[in-house]
Write a protein that binds this DNA or RNA. Structure first.
Lengths: 330, 330
DNA sequence: CTGTTAGCGCTTTCAA
DNA sequence: TTGAAAGCGCTAACAG
């Protein structure tokens, strides 16, 4: 494979001149430049980006780390990140943290392959993140909190969102409200549960006995846990799920058992994923700003890169979205 | 930021020894290794991956190039790619070709930053791809054809899929079948249109006058074009859309005008995206294998990397999926 | 305007 | 088992 050396030789100039020409520097005369570009084309020269980044010690690239490239992640959030990143003339790459500490994500987090990272994954140890972040390598974490000088956290008020959703159900007359979630919850799901519990407690309702938590936070598990609840006989009047994926699995389970949603049981999710408005009945859920969080995350990366002082912690409010999966008890 | 040099100095060994220790080579004694690792930890040493890749001239990373990181792209397909890539011990990164020849994708396609690329985007010139592909840099393109020695194409039989779908509608008694698609179609959409036209032609039906093509292949445009068709007064009995996104937009338009799907008009999409089974009515569409294509793409990259001879062109069959958006005319 | 040269940080012979 | 040294391909002073 041709290198800049070959190009220089073929063009009959020095390496540095070739480099200048290839980078379109005004230092080199039009004639020489043409000669060099021609040589490059002739040799099908391809610059080695690694070498150039190494020399420049800058990559102009930001990494977006997600749990799984094969989704589901929030398109809107990614759009926010993307828009800001591109407008700054930086490149964006996405990689997955599947595999935890042995994943691709770690490679990008700890090996100076990018200039900053936005982490949208919970399976990367806070310690890893703390050790990676530096003034020259800012990292922004979404939906979790990491305490370190060079990492900033962007969260959503999960407790409040859940509290409001539960409050809404109670206002509608619901008294038996179950909560279905996964196991091994991180901060996010912990807060959601807290909000639910607080709302019930404040109304003198029993929360403890209505919790169902195990397995993953996915559709399948929502389905399974719901089947379990159904099998136990006494149905609550409403079920809150830890997220929309689980809720959608839950609706499928109810449907299968010919239990009407919302006629016999109301369902609410959390996240407001795209699917939420398409499932039948359309899912009532808790909306969290997505584009805004993504855009902010990227903004912060650049502010930190420029050495500005920024808040270390941000929290976005949530909003209850009322659709068809909830009904008032009269 | 500490480099390997600093680590070596602090540990009182040479750079090469430090390198060996850091790479866990058996060449270095346990005692020295411990000393070095301790020094590294103490300095919070982070390897420079660029330098190491440059030296090794290998990145063990594959790039997946998509049109837009903010989707919609096929999670299943990505999963296929991901599974194979990881099982080979390679890393996978995703980047977007938004911006065409000035995009991040180009950086990864032409600057030796990765060992191979899988292209799932149509806005990158075939020439760019041809110039990048080499024995040491295989590229696999999906849903398009690029003729070059080191790029292999994986396609889906779009013509056949569309032909079958149209045939099915005809079998069900439909005689007035419109086709709604976007503008500036690449090979993919061209073939889909061809299949539709062939089916109609073979049955002596008029296709030409029932085409509606302009704008993008997205939901919004499907909605707009459908409104247009409705406004023209005479409704066809069935509408085939170039893809599911457009079909979903179309269903929304019909719903808005209180035109029953499938009572008054049958609707068929193409792709079988996840949403297809969730919209109401559930969308009849043409399924194309996703996971398999992704997995094959990744497999081929590795075979090429190993210098094996492989077919330069693959074509997957499609399958009509019958759901609720189509009805028989009796 | 062009060339010489010193590295960027790392790996890997080769010698000791 | 360890160290010295060459060099991956490129950029950017600096000198001419």
């Amino acid at each position: 494979m041709a290198t800049i050396k070959d190009v220089a030789k073929l063009a009959g100039v020095s390496i540095s001149t070739a480099s200048y020409a290839l980078n379109n520097s005004p230092k080199v005369s039009g004639k020489t430049k043409k000669k060099i570009l021609e040589a490059a084309r002739h040799l099908n020269y391809q610059k080695n980006g690694l070498a150039s980044d190494l020399k420049r010690s800058s990559t102009r690239t930001i990494a977006l780390i997600v749990t799984d490239l094969a989704g589901p992640f929030y398109a809107e959030l990614v759009k926010g990140v993307q828009d800001v990143t591109l407008s700054k003339g930086y490149d964006l790459l996405a990689c997955s943290s599947a595999g935890g500490e042995a994943s691709t994500a770690i490679k990008f987090l700890t090996e100076k392959r990018v200039d900053g990272a936005i982490v949208l994954a919970h399976n990367i140890a806070a310690e890893t993140i703390e050790l990676s972040a530096r003034p020259a390598f800012p990292v922004v974490v979404l939906d979790r909190k990491v305490d370190s000088d060079h990492v900033v956290s962007i969260e959503v008020d999960n407790e409040q969102g859940s509290y409001q959703a539960a409050g809404r159900l109670i206002d509608l007359g619901h008294r038996e409200i179950a909560y279905i979630g996964g196991r091994a919850m991180g901060e996010v799901h912990g807060k959601r549960l807290d909000g639910y519990a607080r709302a019930l407690r404040e109304h003198g309702l029993d929360a403890e006995r209505r919790l169902h938590q195990s397995g993953h936070f996915d559709r399948d598990n929502g389905y399974r846990l719901t089947k379990m609840v159904i099998a136990q006989g006494h149905l609550p009047t409403a079920v809150m799920y830890a997220n929309d994926e689980m809720a959608i699995g839950g609706i499928a389970a109810f449907k299968e058992q010919r239990i009407g949603v919302p006629e016999q049981v109301s369902v609410v999710g959390f996240d407001d994923i795209e699917l939420a408005q398409y499932v039948r009945p359309a899912l009532s859920t808790v909306l969290q700003p997505k584009y805004e969080r993504g855009a902010l995350a990227a903004h912060l990366i650049f502010q930190l890169l420029e050495g500005q002082e920024v808040e270390r912690h941000y929290q976005f409010p949530t909003q209850f979205v009322s659709r068809d999966s909830v009904r008032a008890l009269t």
